[in-house]
């Protein structure tokens, strides 16, 4: 089996961190847990998260934990999640998922991604955000190192997955965790 390189987006990371996910989020978390366990067992998988997603995840967790107003207890719960995120992703001791830094090379030809989004057949809903485009672009650059077919973006954003799936020759594979199984998991 080749070496797979998985790139988490913010939605996938949020799903993983939540203690009581519901419905599709619960399904997604289960798939990620199995992937991490099997990847660790087989030592043939690499796990990355774009560094720009870390702030996005922190922001999303703040909205989730403080959605019903501020209390000290909710703030503490939120802070524990952010500290855990840093421990899991950045700490050399844990190092479950590695951060992947945004560079100028990722932005070269990024317009192709937004054009592909606009050309998507049966397009509906919101177009890709700048963040989404950057994650696909970072996956595309990883593909030059690990092979385009070996890089897999993990997301709960169906739109991002559709753009990648419809342009497999140019972009990395992307899995909508709510709908699809993860290759190599």
């Amino acid at each position: 089996m080749g070496q797979y390189c998985y790139l988490f987006d913010a939605s996938a990371l949020v799903a993983l961190l939540l203690k009581n996910p519901d419905g599709d989020v619960k399904i997604a978390k289960g798939k990620i847990l199995k992937l991490l366990a099997n990847g660790r067992k087989n030592e043939n998988s690499l796990f990355f998260v774009p560094n720009i997603c870390m702030a996005e995840v922190s922001s999303a967790l703040a909205k989730i934990f403080l959605a019903d107003g501020y209390t000290e207890q909710r703030e503490n719960s939120y802070r524990q999640h952010v500290e855990f995120l840093l421990e899991w992703v950045s700490s050399k001791k844990r190092h479950v998922i590695q951060t992947y830094a945004l560079k100028r090379s990722h932005l070269v030809d990024i317009e192709h991604i937004f054009i592909a989004d606009r050309k998507l057949p049966g397009r509906k809903g919101n177009p890709l955000s700048g963040h989404d485009g950057i994650i696909i672009a970072m996956g595309r650059v990883l593909g030059r190192t690990y092979g385009n077919g070996n890089v897999i973006i993990l997301t709960l954003d169906g739109r991002m997955a559709d753009v990648c799936v419809h342009n497999r020759d140019f972009f990395p594979h992307a899995i909508d965790l709510a709908r699809q199984e993860i290759p190599g998991a």
Partner: peptide
């Protein structure tokens, strides 16, 4: 084990909530 020690949210979190939060 560390992951399991994280505190829960008041209610289960749905995909829609994550989409809105992002």
């Amino acid at each position: 084990d560390l992951l399991d020690k994280l505190p829960p949210t008041a209610k289960p979190v749905t995909l829609k909530q994550i989409e809105n939060a992002l």
